[in-house]
Design a protein around this nucleic acid. Structure first.
Ligand code: MN
Ligand code: MN
Ligand code: ZN
Ligand code: ZN
Lengths: 142, 142
DNA sequence: GAATGTGATGTTAATGATAATCATTCCTAT
DNA sequence: ATAGGAATGATTATCATTAACATCACATTC
């Protein structure tokens, strides 16, 4: 048995496609993956899973709290393992590299802004779009 | 002549469809509008404009700096007039009302976070998803 | 350990938002 | 008023995502 632990405790039946998708997220170094990313990576390793199933499993994992969904710049959704530590993202417009950050002051001021206006915060999304100047960046045109 | 001022100074030829779209944004009380919103509102007033043209004009206005685009929760894009004053948004998950806010501390800490990591900020998007408790909110289920 | 019923899967078709085509029409500068 | 290039609109295409539905696999019972 692989990690039926997570799946069962998440209220999900332990099936081969779900185990494969979960394994992928746990083993991949790229940890922000789109449905297409997941589909292709599983194809490449022979751990074939139907595309519709990938989409379904991602939604289920998100609802179960195993994955977190992000939408960068209106593009396709990307998912990452929910490590319990919320963070926001900086996305390089050139190489699409994603870096994570957390700023407690930003978080608390968001809550303050919402509360002052009579809102009960459910969620938020903060993405910074930038150009990275690190050597890693191929700086390919968009 | 309507407001060929804006259009010309933005480097855009003054055409009837563009004037109509611009007028709509300048006169509508709802100031966050999707392409479909624009299309339907123009239909309703008889100021008919093709849907493809609406999409094109919105892109052109965005590139010209007349409009700003937002993507709330991965949904369809919405646009608003660029008043030169950047702000972020709180979106009610129930009635979809959008409220605007600006927090200088949040802005500066974003820049700091990006700079510390070697990024040159080009843009950012901060959306708070919440439930509003004001009487205005019909609190319709999503 | 085999039967069994429900829920999961995969193939395929449908959606919805947006972009691309292309023939026709409209601005703007002669 | 004319001419040439840009803009428009009807239509088709694309892309990500979801829906349908027949088949298959898990988990539980016998
Ligand atoms: Mn992340
Ligand atoms: Mn706004
Ligand atoms: Zn980069
Ligand atoms: Zn509301």
């Amino acid at each position: 048995m692989n990690q039926p632990i997570h799946l069962k405790s998440a209220g999900l039946k332990s099936t081969l496609p779900r185990i494969r998708v979960l394994n992928l997220f746990e083993s991949s170094d790229e940890h922000h993956l789109s449905a297409e990313d997941v589909y292709k990576k599983l194809l490449a390793t022979g751990d074939d899973v139907g595309l519709a199933t990938v989409y379904r499993v991602l939604i289920q994992f998100e609802q179960a709290g195993l994955l977190v969904r992000h939408n960068f710049a209106g593009d396709k959704s990307v998912f990452e393992l929910n490590q319990g530590k919320h963070h926001d993202h900086i996305v390089c417009l050139q190489c699409h590299r994603v870096e994570e950050f957390y700023d407690a002051t930003i978080e608390s001021r968001q809550n303050k802004a919402a509360a002052e206006r009579g809102f009960t915060v459910q969620d938020h999304s903060l993405n910074i779009y930038a150009n990275c100047i690190k050597p890693k960046c191929p700086n390919k045109p968009r």
